[in-house]
Design a protein around this nucleic acid. Structure first.
Length: 422
DNA sequence: TCTGGGGTCCTAGGACCC
DNA sequence: TCTGGGGTCCTAGGACCC
């Protein structure tokens, strides 16, 4: 058996951990730039505010209902996530971290599955204050279905175990295909036109037909719904294949210098991410684009890739590479709204010493790793952006907005939570 | 008026090779 | 009056997920 544990409204729950006064008040968390809603408490969901809705469109409704609004605070969420994962790991033989708030748990060999799951939920609640739901079934896809019911059916008390054929049949008959893991908008539209409406319908489709229409991905879904496990619990954490930093601008950019400064800032952040994971990149791409939500404005979007002679992860080399890419694609006269930088061909430490036969032996030395460790430590201690390259510029008008940020309760000494006893 | 960011996996199709 | 066929590698783009 496989369990899928999922934190309820994770980002909202993280904000509530240090603000018990919000426990019974509606809460929502915004995307970058305070653009749209990406996490809603149950009360906000009940108001009919959809996931991903533009904040500004619902600002009044949210204010009318006294909803507490937060800018997204990924340092906080990431920290609470890793605490939650370690807790779970200490209680079970094997987990696979699937997303920031969801691990799959391998339950093979466990005797009293439900008791263990109750214990896991209780431990997370008591130690972290995060509410969770657990779905249990024979395959990952079915565990996802079980989790769907665990969240929505109060009688289940947040745990749903699809332990029999009958229960599974009932569960599949009452859920539409669009709720199934891996079935998005396009595929459900196509399937519905063929009369496949519920997950139970989908379970009956010939897997070979699914493969023809929707590749092996579709075939696997049907098999998994039939209780045949096609997606194993991944043992080793795979090496990441790409790392990116992309942002919409707080204000649109119309000149090269601001764009260059933005790209340099993203390149700096990319370097931090690479160094934190001890990774190097040999392939840096940059993209820029105008606002695609304004079809009447002149549209332009392009990207360029720079392939490097040797793997890098220091800020200066990344900024240099990114600037070269940017120069190749920049066209004057457009209003840019978004840009990003991506690193591909990631290589772990140690693999970066390989010498290219045809490259000059006496190339300039790699930027000193000690220097970058010192810079990272300073920025970690005194806040991101304490020390940065002049290429990132001083004008911050294009920077993203985060007007409603909560304190860094768990990662900054100067913002640690304070409790008062009365 | 505004509408996120960071990932993965899969396929088609072109280039190239023998 | 015919112009192979099989294989690999790479990239762009689509679809999906949280």
């Amino acid at each position: 058996m496989i369990a899928l544990l999922d934190a309820n409204n994770f980002f909202v729950s993280c904000e509530r951990v240090f603000r018990p006064d919000l426990m019974n008040r509606p809460v929502a968390v915004l995307s970058n730039n305070d653009g749209c809603l990406i996490s809603r408490s149950n009360e906000v969901k009940a108001l009919g505010v959809p996931m991903g809705a533009p904040y500004i469109k619902y600002k009044d409704v949210l204010a009318d209902h006294n909803v507490a609004i937060f800018s997204s605070h990924f340092t906080l969420y990431g920290d609470l996530s890793s605490r939650m994962m370690s807790l779970i790991e200490s209680l079970v033989p094997k987990i696979e971290v699937y997303s920031i708030d969801e691990p799959f748990i391998d339950l093979s060999g466990i005797k009293n599955i439900e008791a263990l799951c109750h214990h896991i939920r209780h431990t997370i609640w008591r130690s972290l204050g995060i509410p969770t739901s657990i779905g249990i079934a024979k395959t990952k896809t079915l565990a996802k279905v079980a989790n769907y019911y665990a969240k929505r059916t109060p009688a289940f008390k947040s745990i749903c175990y699809l332990d029999s054929f009958d229960r599974t049949e009932l569960a599949l008959k009452k859920i539409s295909i669009g709720e199934i893991w891996g079935i998005g908008k396009q595929i459900s539209k196509k399937l519905e036109s063929q009369g496949v409406i519920t997950a139970w319908d989908l379970k009956q489709v010939d897997p070979r037909c699914m493969r023809q229409q929707f590749t092996v991905v579709g075939e696997r879904i049907v098999r998994e719904l039939n209780g045949i496990s096609c997606l194993a619990i991944e043992d080793v954490e795979d090496l990441k294949k790409s790392i990116q930093v992309t942002r919409s601008f707080g204000k649109p950019i119309t000149n090269f210098y601001d764009l260059k400064a933005a790209i340099a800032t993203y390149a700096t952040r990319l370097g931090e991410k690479l160094r934190r994971q001890d990774l190097f990149t040999q392939n840096v791409s940059v993209f820029i684009r105008t606002n695609k939500h304004r079809p009447n404005d002149p549209q332009y979007s392009n990207s360029a890739t720079v392939v490097l002679q040797k793997p890098i992860n220091d800020g200066i080399s990344l900024i240099k590479a990114a600037s070269i890419a940017l120069q190749q694609i920049y066209i004057n006269g457009y209003t840019y709204s978004k840009a990003g930088i991506m690193a591909h061909e990631l290589k772990p430490k140690g693999q970066n010493v390989q010498l290219d036969l045809f490259s000059n032996k006496f190339e300039e030395p790699l930027q000193s790793p000690e220097l970058w460790e010192a810079i990272d430590n300073l920025n970690k201690r005194y806040g991101r952006g304490t020390l940065f390259s002049a290429a990132c510029g001083k004008s911050l008008s294009w920077k993203d907005k985060k007007n409603l940020l909560s304190p860094s309760y768990t990662t900054r000494w100067d913002q640690i939570a304070i409790a008062f006893a009365r």
